[in-house]
Amino acid sequence: MRRLSSLIITSLLKAIAVELFGMFVADAWLTLALLAVVGGAAAAIGYLSAPPLAGGAALTAGTLAVLLISVRSAAAKSPDDPGRQSRPWKSMKPRSAASASR
């Protein structure tokens, strides 16, 4: 019984590790950008003697900027959902002068 529970725990930990590794490897740009933000904030605090509050603000702003860029990039790459119209102005037809005067 003890061996079975250790096998289950081992396989569970392995599955979690594989998923976490896959999350970071799947989007290499996101991983590198976040590492750069964290490294930059750490360097600012450690080497430039910036106040920790400024480092925290830089970390927060940098992380949010990277997240926004990543989400916008992923949205631009993904095909539009049939039920969602992402750019409604693209499907609008220009009104003619005759229909505008009515």
Rank of each mutant, 00 (worst) to 15 (best):
I8M: 03
I8Y: 01
I8R: 10
I8Q: 04
I9D: 13
T10H: 01
T10V: 12
T10Q: 03
T10S: 15
T10E: 08
S11G: 07
S11I: 13
S11F: 08
L12P: 07
L12G: 14
L13P: 02
L13M: 13
K14H: 08
K14F: 10
K14V: 08
K14D: 11
K14E: 10
A15F: 03
A15I: 02
A15G: 14
A15V: 04
A15N: 08
I16F: 14
I16Q: 15
I16V: 13
A17V: 09
A17N: 03
A17R: 07
V18C: 09
L20Y: 04
L20Q: 03
F21C: 09
F21T: 08
F21Y: 13
G22Q: 09
G22M: 09
M23V: 10
M23L: 13
M23P: 05
F24H: 08
F24E: 09
V25W: 13
V25L: 15
V25A: 15
V25Q: 15
A26T: 06
A26P: 03
D27S: 14
D27M: 03
A28T: 07
A28P: 07
W29D: 12
W29L: 13
W29T: 07
W29E: 11
L30W: 02
L30R: 00
T31D: 11
T31H: 08
T31E: 05
L32Q: 06
L32F: 00
L32S: 05
L32N: 07
L32E: 03
A33N: 05
A33D: 04
L34W: 05
L34T: 11
L34C: 01
L34P: 03
L34F: 02
L34E: 04
L35P: 00
L35K: 00
A36D: 00
A36V: 04
A36C: 06
A36K: 09
A36Y: 01
V37C: 02
V37M: 01
V37N: 01
V37D: 02
V38M: 07
V38H: 08
V38F: 12
V38Y: 06
G39E: 00
G39I: 02
G39C: 02
G39V: 03
G40F: 00
G40M: 01
G40L: 00
G40I: 00
G40H: 03
A41C: 12
A41D: 01
A41G: 03
A42L: 14
A42S: 11
A42C: 10
A42T: 04
A42H: 01
A43G: 14
A43S: 13
A43P: 02
A44R: 07
A44W: 04
A44S: 15
I45L: 15
G46N: 10
G46E: 12
G46W: 12
G46D: 09
G46K: 15
Y47W: 14
Y47Q: 11
L48C: 14
L48Y: 09
L48S: 14
L48G: 13
L48E: 10
S49P: 04
S49A: 15
S49T: 06
A50S: 11
A50Y: 06
A50K: 09
P51K: 10
P51R: 10
P52C: 05
L53Q: 11
A54R: 06
A54K: 08
G55Y: 06
G55L: 05
G55S: 04
